[in-house]
């Protein structure tokens, strides 16, 4: 084994090998994931895209050890996902902000730090740092209900980042927001990813969002949930939202759309 392949091996953040996951419902067995194979390397921004029920969220939950696969193997940072979860290897941003209403913005960001036993001075410093990163300085003492939906979701992003995970899972984090807020947060997230060099796994059902943000797009299809295409995106790093009008962007978007349509046709 030469040096390069050793490096490539250690850079693997997530490896999914022949994973199947069945949900047992009262209407029978639903194949949420079927024959899923995927490898994510450090520093990538990988989006899972597909219609509802294609298993994109389930796949991310498997990586985060919130769901157990029926068969197949999953490694996160080279360990079993449960081990990775215990070692707090990742941050997770949910579809909704999931803030505790009785805690201020600051105390919501402190929640994971308290649980992980970070020392008090350090906690304050980290909360301050990451609230600043998501442009929420000055809102520390507010309660979640006093903030707009977009601001709440930014608090939850700051909370996920505050523990400094190298891996960030984001499950349709902007799905519930209006388009203008969403565009704005997409740009912020892109900058954040470039600044912090983190690996991001992102679930969405928006094609423009996926193409704009990702370095790689995993197209999925339902019944059974499976990967039908993996598309590399090499748009320039300094891109802005304007890029969505360019031919390069539209070509990739078209390929994603074709993949989604193919998956849909299989189904009918």
């Amino acid at each position: 084994m030469n040096l390069e392949s050793v490096n490539a091996a250690t850079n693997k953040v997530a490896e999914v090998d022949d994973v199947y996951l069945d949900f047992h419902t009262k209407d029978g067995v639903v194949a949420a994931l079927s024959n899923v194979n995927l490898c994510i390397t450090a520093g990538e921004f990988v989006s899972f895209i597909g219609p509802s029920g294609c298993g994109k969220t389930t796949l991310m939950r498997v990586l985060a050890d919130l769901e157990q696969p029926t068969s197949g193997s999953v490694l996160v940072n080279g360990m079993h996902p449960s081990q990775a979860r215990k070692e707090r290897a990742y941050g997770y941003v949910f579809q909704a902000p999931a803030l505790l209403p009785w805690r201020t913005v600051q105390d919501n960001v402190l929640l994971p730090l308290e649980i992980m036993g970070v020392d008090k001075d350090k906690q304050q410093q980290l909360a301050e740092e990451y609230l600043q990163l998501v442009n929420l300085s000055g809102f520390e003492a507010k309660y979640p209900w006093q903030l707009s939906g977009g601001m709440q979701q930014r608090v939850s992003i700051a909370r996920a980042l505050s523990v400094k995970p190298q891996l960030l899972f984001m499950d349709e984090p902007f799905g519930a927001l209006d388009e203008i807020t969403r565009d704005h947060l997409n740009e912020q997230l892109l900058r954040l990813w470039q600044q912090t060099q983190k690996t991001v796994v992102f679930v969405t059902h928006s094609i423009p969002e996926a193409v704009f943000l990702s370095s790689r797009i995993v197209v999925m299809s339902p019944r059974p949930g499976r990967i039908i295409d993996v598309i590399d995106c090499d748009l320039p790093a300094d891109r802005t939202l304007d890029i969505r009008e360019t031919p390069e962007f539209l070509t990739i978007a078209q390929r994603v759309r074709t993949g989604l349509a193919a998956g849909h046709n299989d189904d009918s």
Binding site: A64, F94, L100, W102, I115
Partner: peptide
């Protein structure tokens, strides 16, 4: 508590008592 909040604390590998004091009791 919403399943999402329980999942959230699970991603921090919070102990049962941390979940009790910080989420379930309030």
């Amino acid at each position: 508590p919403q399943p999402m909040l329980l999942d959230l604390l699970n991603t921090y590998s919070a102990s049962r008592w941390q979940v009790f004091w910080r989420l379930r009791l309030p």
